[in-house]
């Protein structure tokens, strides 16, 4: 294969104009279910989530630890193992050339689409790369069989891809410990995108990095996304990252989506009390005004509070919040919120 052909291979963009969203999640429920001595215990980590992610957009998910973010992306990536089970709902991908209902596939078919169409940038780059193998071998281990190229062409493709991401191909000869944290994270991003997947899931990729490196890694993610026109599901609890990177944003609380909209709308005009708290409590340089933290602790998902799960910590909780689960309602312009105080729920 000549270099020219290789370039064509790398740059091939699906011809057909996609019409359906890149990802459609409908009423997804995924619970951790255990049964010991006849006692069933359920942890409702993902509870009735419906969302759409369009082609060529970065969709952010924000929420505190134990809000079910990781369980949600594991379920979306089809990387679940018991005791986490999908109870109901569906996950539909549209990769342009192929439409996939993830949970109707056989496990081996699911494995086949992973990495090629669906890539996953994980948190903690240190533990992703095998410390005993050079970076080059990690690329071979992960991506070789998905690319379907002979080995020399594959390695050339990898080097070209690295150059495109402004990484020196020399990193291929390094062991992970020889690279700095930021460099390792960049290698992991290169690794996840080498097959030019249509959908990328990024789980807190910059949480352990310091500010300077964080910004350069985010810039790289944005560049990769623009260049490949991929969709990214970006998960982090850092609201400043969402403000600067994502196109649309979903706020998760205790396994449910509580608010969703364009990132700019959400930051300018947050409606759910939890979102308001998340945005208002951010300290910023040049402003030393006292801020208040949120009282209380996230609910135990094995025994979540009835009604709105945020009501025990909510400053404006009403009677109805303790009884009725607020439905997700549209406020127009793609802005949706699940809060009785906004949508006017009453006790029946």
């Amino acid at each position: 294969m000549t270099l020219h052909q290789l370039n064509n291979h790398l740059n091939s963009v699906p011809e057909t104009a996609p019409t359906s969203p890149a990802l459609r999640v409908d009423g997804l429920k995924a619970y951790y279910q255990t049964r010991w001595f006849g006692i069933t215990r359920e942890v409702r980590a993902v509870d009735d989530i419906t969302l759409r992610i369009e082609h060529d957009e970065i969709y952010g998910i924000a929420g505190e630890s134990s809000s079910g973010k990781s369980s949600l992306i594991k379920t979306i990536a089809g990387a679940i193992r018991p005791p986490l089970n999908v109870v109901s709902g569906s996950v539909n991908f549209d990769f342009g050339t192929r439409k996939v209902d993830l949970y109707s596939l056989k496990p081996e078919e699911r494995t086949a689409i992973r990495w090629k169409h669906l890539a996953y940038i994980m948190q903690g780059s240190m533990s992703v790369l095998n410390p005993l193998r050079r970076v080059r071998q990690s690329f071979v281990d992960f991506a070789f069989r998905h690319m379907g190229l002979p080995m020399p062409a594959f390695l050339r493709a990898v080097e070209e891809h690295l150059l495109k991401l402004h990484l020196q191909p020399g990193v291929l000869d390094s062991y992970p410990h020889e690279l700095s944290g930021g460099m390792r994270q960049r290698v992991v991003i290169a690794l996840a995108t080498v097959c030019r997947p249509g959908f990328i899931i990024a789980d807190e990729p910059t949480t352990a990095l310091d500010v300077v490196v964080q910004k350069s890694v985010l810039t790289m993610i944005r560049e990769v996304q623009r260049e490949m026109r991929a969709s990214i599901l970006f998960v982090t609890h850092d609201m400043a990252v969402h403000a600067n990177l994502t196109d649309r944003l979903g706020i998760m609380y205790a396994g449910r989506l509580v608010e969703e909209g364009r990132t700019r709308d959400l930051f300018r005009n947050p409606r759910h009390p939890y979102t308001i708290h998340l945005i208002r409590s951010l300290p910023r340089i040049g402003d030393a005004e006292p801020r208040k933290g949120l009282e209380g602790t996230p609910p135990n998902l094995a025994d979540p509070p009835p009604g709105c799960r945020f009501h025990p910590r909510c400053p404006i909780a009403m009677d109805v919040c303790r009884v009725v689960v607020p439905p997700m309602q549209s406020l127009g312009g793609g802005h949706r919120v699940a809060c009785h105080a906004v949508t006017g729920g009453t006790v029946q």
Binding site: V211, Q214, A240, A243, N244, L245, F267
Partner: peptide
Amino acid sequence: KNSVLSPDVPDDDEPQTI
């Protein structure tokens, strides 16, 4: 200081910081 991501969103016609 310049690397710190501001928690403010830009105006509609302006691109994001990144």
